[in-house]
Structures are given as C-alpha cells and as structure tokens.
C-alpha cells in the first residue's frame, strides 16, 4: 500500500487531517503532563544536594530540549518548503516558530530561577544559558523577518534562508560560547544531571519532555490551520468552510 504522501500536502486535506489530530495530541499532552508532574513532585525523592529546588528540572530541561528540537524541525520544514516549493511546509515552519520561541523563553526563565538558589545570581554567563539566549535571538530574527515581508511566498522563502543559515550556525555558536565560557571563569558549576540522577527523576523528566512534545505538535497543528485560513482566504473551500461554521 503505497502511501501517497502528497495527498496531505494540499492545504485542504491537511486542514481536515490536522483537525482530527489536534484533540488526540492535546489529550496526550495533558495526560502526560499530569503524570510527569505527579512523578516529579510526589514520587521523586528530595535531592540530597539541592533540596527541593531541583524540581524545576522537570520543566527546565524539557523546555531546553524542545527549544533546540523545534528549531531543527522548523529548519527542516523550511528547507522542504524552499526545495519543493510546497506552501504548506513553509506554513508549518511558520507555525512552529512561536512555540519554539516560547520554549526558549521558558528554558531561560526557569534556568535563571533555578540558578538563583544554586549559583546565587539570576543570570550566570554559563555556556548553555548564553547559547539558549542566542537561540532566542535566532527565533526572534526568523519571526520578525517573516512579519516584515507582506508577500507570503517571499516571507516563506526568506524565512527559510535565515532558518537554514541559523541552523548551520547553532553548533558554531554553541562551540564558541563553550570555549569562551571555559576561558573566562573556568567550568561553572554544572547542574546535577544524568549520571547520578535517581531513576524516578529521569522518568519524570522523560515524561515531561513527551508532554511538551505532544503540546508542541498540537500547538503547531492549531496554528498551521489558522495560517491556512489566513492565506487561503480567497479559495472556495475556505469560503464554504466559514459558511458551515457560521451556520
């Protein structure tokens, strides 16, 4: 049974498919979040070194992973949109950007809130926090470029170029910030992570990451549907769609 992938690349069929998928992902996100938080707060033991403050890890690490992962997925769809000229893939890339930016902001916010009790200051020029901040600038650059261009086709392609240039630069930025950070104040206190983590902590974090992932998918589907409605205003199927909803 050869799956005809291009069937779903037309906005109309994608619109209905996304409509069916959104409830599934939303419910999955909510359930996983509840499970993750329950494990994080009620099952995971108190950390011997950091006391209770480490529980921020259950939102900080998933947000950081998601921010990086979503940028790569966004660049992937932008590249597909640029290469195959499929409007829908660029719309998905545009739909991912705000959620990715939100996760980056959350990672920074929770990171600095966690840094306060552990390192004593709200902001430490730690290599990870700094490259996360630069990632936020990349997201903002992408979104503001797309917002500044009126013609959607040019906005998609221009956004794709800046996303791809950004993706090439992420390892370079991370490497140079790491080099720069260790040069200045020596390796800063690293968060107690992976090797010595109790299994329940790890489990809680994994589940929370899955929850964030489901949420990101649901959010992207919802926003891509709205973008489709905005861009396909003139088409017939959108018109009669509105009749149905209005009626």
């Amino acid at each position: 049974m050869a799956i005809n992938w291009f069937k779903y690349s037309s906005p109309a069929t994608y619109y209905s498919l996304a409509g069916k998928l959104i409830p599934i992902f939303t419910v999955a996100a909510v359930l996983l979040a509840i499970a993750g938080l329950y494990i994080g707060f009620f099952v995971a033991p108190t950390d011997f070194q950091q006391g209770e403050a480490y529980r921020i890890i259950f939102i900080h690490v998933p947000a950081a992973w998601m921010s990086m992962f979503l940028y790569l997925v966004m660049a992937f769809w932008a590249a597909i949109g640029l290469a195959f000229n499929t409007r829908l893939s660029s719309m998905i890339a545009t739909a991912i950007a705000p959620t990715g930016a939100m996760f980056t902001f959350l990672a920074l916010w929770t990171g600095s809130l966690w840094g306060k009790p552990m390192w004593g200051t709200w902001w430490v020029w730690d290599a990870r926090l700094t490259s996360e901040l630069i990632l936020l600038f990349l997201y903002i650059g992408f979104m503001s470029l797309q917002a500044a261009i009126d013609d959607p086709r040019r906005a998609d392609k221009a956004g794709a170029v800046i996303a791809l240039v950004g993706v090439v630069n992420i390892p370079i930025i991370y490497f140079s910030v790491n080099w720069w950070n260790t040069l200045h104040q020596g390796a800063s206190v690293s968060l107690t992570q992976s090797p010595k983590m109790a299994s329940t902590m790890l489990l809680g974090m994994i589940i929370m990451s899955l929850a964030c992932w489901m949420y990101a998918i649901a959010m992207t589907l919802i926003r891509s549907r709205v973008i489709i409605l905005e861009r396909e205003r003139h088409t017939a199927w959108v018109a009669e769609l509105h009749e149905k909803e209005a009626a």
Binding site: T46, A53, T110, W114
Partner: peptide, 11 residues
Amino acid sequence: MGGYGFYVWGS
C-alpha cells in the same frame, strides 16, 4: 517546597 517554593512555583 523546602524553602525554595518561590523559585519552583515561580517557574
């Protein structure tokens, strides 16, 4: 939250 309530709940 073991004294860290502000930070944990803040985030």
